[in-house]
């Protein structure tokens, strides 16, 4: 017996999920159709709902259902500071620090020359417009400390250096509470190279 075509197209559609290959996709499709048709309906509805409702915030580019996300609309935030992060998850991590009260810009990706991802793909002109609104005084680049994150940071700093904003990069080094004995050599070497003099 051949597989019905709609089941086949469901299997094919499920493969778009990260980490889902043909085998897992087939298992998911059969499970939904055989054991959990209400679950399948819920999945379909929420997927449709999310697609219709979720968009990017006009200012920080994160996911939101309204024109301007709550954070950007809040009067309590310091609008002169703009922190640039790669993903919404990174933004949440920054928020958990309770150390930052400025605003954000979420790139939704990173510059990756070998994958052909550059300023065009990331729509960096939107960030440029955001940073040149006249209120932002400092742009804090909080991209990852990977090569791609560094490439992104360089790209952004080059792009912003002609604008009248201060551009800074978050520091890296030995973690808080870190004992040198247990720090990996790469981190320690970099921390050594980027050592700073004590202020007078």
């Amino acid at each position: 017996m051949s597989t019905p075509s709609s089941l086949e197209s469901l299997v094919e559609a499920l493969r778009c999920l990260p980490g889902v290959g043909p085998k897992s996709a087939q298992r998911m499709a059969y499970a939904l159709m055989q054991h959990d048709r209400t679950g399948a309906l819920r999945l379909a509805d929420s997927l449709r709902g999310a697609l219709a409702a979720i968009r990017h915030c006009g200012r920080c580019n994160t996911f939101t259902e309204i024109e301007l996300c709550e954070r950007c609309a809040s009067p309590k935030r310091d609008a002169s500071l703009l922190c640039v992060v790669e993903t919404p998850v990174d933004m949440n991590m920054m928020e958990q620090t309770h150390a930052y009260s400025g605003l954000y810009y979420v790139l939704m990706g990173r510059v990756s020359p070998l994958d052909g991802v550059g300023s065009r793909e990331l729509q960096l002109e939107r960030l440029l417009a955001r940073a040149s609104d006249g209120i932002v005084e400092e742009v804090i680049i909080a991209t990852n400390f990977t090569n791609e994150g560094e490439a992104t940071a360089h790209y952004l700093s080059e792009m912003l250096k002609t604008r009248s904003v201060r551009v800074s990069r978050i520091a890296r080094g030995v973690p808080v509470g870190g004992e040198l004995e247990y720090v990996d050599s790469g981190t320690l070497a970099q921390a050594f190279r980027e050592r700073r003099t004590f202020a007078e």
């Binding site: 510059v111 020359p113 070998l114 052909g116 991802v117 300023s119 960096l124 790209y155 080059e158 792009m159």
Partner: peptide, 11 residues
């Protein structure tokens, strides 16, 4: 990589 680098120069 060249394309991305050129884009950087144009910014």
């Amino acid at each position: 990589t060249r394309k991305i680098f050129m884009e950087l120069q144009e910014l």
